[in-house]
Nucleic acid binder design. Structure first.
Length: 476
RNA sequence: GUCCCCGUCGUCUAGCCAGGUCAAGGACACGGGCCUUUCGAGCCCGCGGCACGGGUUCAAAUCCCGUCGGGGACACCA
């Protein structure tokens, strides 16, 4: 998408701090960011906090934190609309003076009643214009409404959809300033976009119906409107816009589930956009290749399975050392240490890399490193720790006990080969009981590897523990 | 109700603007196989789609019209 003028591209992301940054907002922010970086333009963060009832500082902090985590940075801001009320009022005043807007004294109750009546009669539930033609000044609190044209049309060329036309008669005299003196979204967005020199507005599809209203404000103020690109919403499996009832939607929730920022960015970018057959994109590649005009026009369904696959890809790409650092909160959660400098722990991380789809799963898989099993997998016990299995356990235990504490993987493997040879047993008959002894589970990384990681001394201790447990619980 | 947007495998996406090389390609998921000490990872194979109906054309996923289906807006929320 190219702008017709020789000017610096300026885009913005304008969340309202009434909740956490969710997947959809993150994608909008990302697309704006990518577009700005690609064009060598500027990206502005603007906090739309004109809803004083619902805006909260903690959400501002959380949104900023999440954007930073994703690697999305901005050149200006955060700009708070609540700091700019005087500016908006100045423009409201101007429109009032020019007769392009008027004061409305209708009460919310009255309006609600009229709206219901209109709907009941099958009419359009728009404002009926009571105060538009009011001769005498009203009393009490008032809102300010824009006087919209009765005839003609407004249109704009959307980057994704082409020409979109609206008949002005479809647009009621909507409120631009509330009775509490704070202007509404449509008004503040226009003033800010115009004053901040925003050249391209990239935002969610749900704003498409706001655009003609905003265009009327641009017209009344004689500002030149920016280029608009309305990107489709992200939907749930039921094709309804993604929301809390679909489960986790907050970026922070995905971080807490153990998803990597790289995977989130890659997945979100790829959701609604593609570049040939390529699936994996770094932020640099995205900046290079992404263009808003290539975004799909139809809504995309959020699919956590594909996100998990991507996360697994990035987990496998990472250096064990870095991964160990990222694991910290997930180990903390389990009351376990996270010795990211410990070479044995790093070896374990390396073994876990192709086995964990999230950091949380990896932490779970690493738990046995720090504590002997508290219980053993029941089915595994019955299947592998019968009389025969116990015999193998004892033999391996005794062989391992002969090894030095720094025994290598090869030496450990030789122990198993020797026992296999003397007993004629298959590897699985030996490996599973030992795995149970060391981890309590029937699944884990390779058995030689985990003995090496744990150390033969600890391995022997845990085998003894299992033997003891079996004796005490009289398992046959 | 009125207005607006959307419609390629279950899901994401390539192809559509510039009709033929598309008996529609890739990825996730799913099924099977190989490997193998479990699980996973990896590799190989498979399943599966142009919403429907007309039209234009020698030729349509691509252009036109209609139908159906999904979603959004119509707030003193953004």
């Amino acid at each position: 998408m190219t702008h017709h003028k020789e000017e610096i591209i300026r885009v913005r992301f304008a969340p309202s701090p009434t909740g956490h940054l969710h997947i959809g907002g993150a994608r909008t922010a990302l697309y704006n960011f990518l577009y700005a970086r690609h064009a060598g333009g500027q990206f502005i963060l603007r906090i739309e906090d004109t809803d004083v009832e619902r805006s909260e500082q903690r959400f501002v902090d959380a949104i900023i934190h999440d954007l930073q985590w994703l690697g999305i940075s901005w050149d200006e801001g955060p700009v708070f609309q609540s700091d700019r009320l005087d500016i908006y009022r100045e423009y409201v005043e101007k429109l009032l003076e020019q007769g392009r807007a008027y004061r409305c004294y209708c009460t919310p109750e009255e309006l609600e009643r009229k709206r219901k009546k209109a709907v009941a009669e099958g009419k359009r539930p728009g404002y009926d214009g009571t105060c538009r033609n009011r001769k005498l000044p009203g009393e009490g609190p008032f809102t300010v409404r824009l006087k919209t044209p009765d005839t003609g049309s407004v249109s704009f060329t959307d980057v994704l959809r082409g020409e979109v036309v609206w008949q002005c008669q479809e647009i009621e005299d909507f409120i631009i300033m509330r009775s509490n003196g704070i202007p509404t979204y449509n008004f503040t967005a226009v003033i800010d976009d115009a004053l901040m020199g925003i050249t391209h507005v990239i935002r969610g599809d749900d704003h498409i119906a706001n655009t003609p209203r905003q265009l009327l404000i641009y017209r009344a103020l004689q500002f030149e409107p920016p280029v608009f690109a309305h990107i489709p919403l992200i939907v749930g499996p039921d094709r309804a816009p993604l929301s809390k009832r679909h489960g986790a939607v907050a970026v922070s929730a995905f971080r807490e589930m153990g998803f990597l920022a790289e995977a989130m960015v890659n997945y979100i970018a790829r959701l609604g956009w593609g570049y040939g057959d390529q699936e994996i994109f770094s932020m640099e590649e995205l900046i290079e290749l992404f263009d808003v005009k290539d975004v799909n026009r139809s809504p995309a369904t959020f699919d956590i399975e594909k996100l998990r696959w991507m996360n697994s890809h990035y987990i496998q790409q990472k250096r064990p050392g870095e991964l160990a650092g990222l694991l910290k909160p997930f180990m903390d959660k389990r009351g376990l240490p996270c010795p990211s400098g410990d070479s044995k722990f790093l070896m374990l991380v390396r073994e876990l890399q192709p086995r964990a789809k999230t950091l949380d799963e990896m932490a779970e898989g690493a738990a046995f490193f720090f504590r002997a099993p508290e219980f053993y997998d029941d089915r595994g016990l019955r299947k592998f720790c019968g009389k025969e299995g116990r015999q193998y356990l004892r033999m391996i235990r005794n062989e391992l006990a002969q090894l030095s504490s720094s025994a290598s993987r090869d030496e450990i493997q030789k122990v198993f080969e020797k026992v296999m040879e003397t007993t004629g047993a298959k590897m699985i008959k030996l490996a599973q009981p030992v795995r149970l002894a060391l981890t309590g589970k029937t699944v884990s990384p390779g058995i030689f590897e985990i003995i090496e990681i744990l150390g033969v001394e600890e391995a022997v201790k845990r085998i003894d523990l299992l033997l003891q447990y079996i004796k005490e619980n009289e398992i046959s």
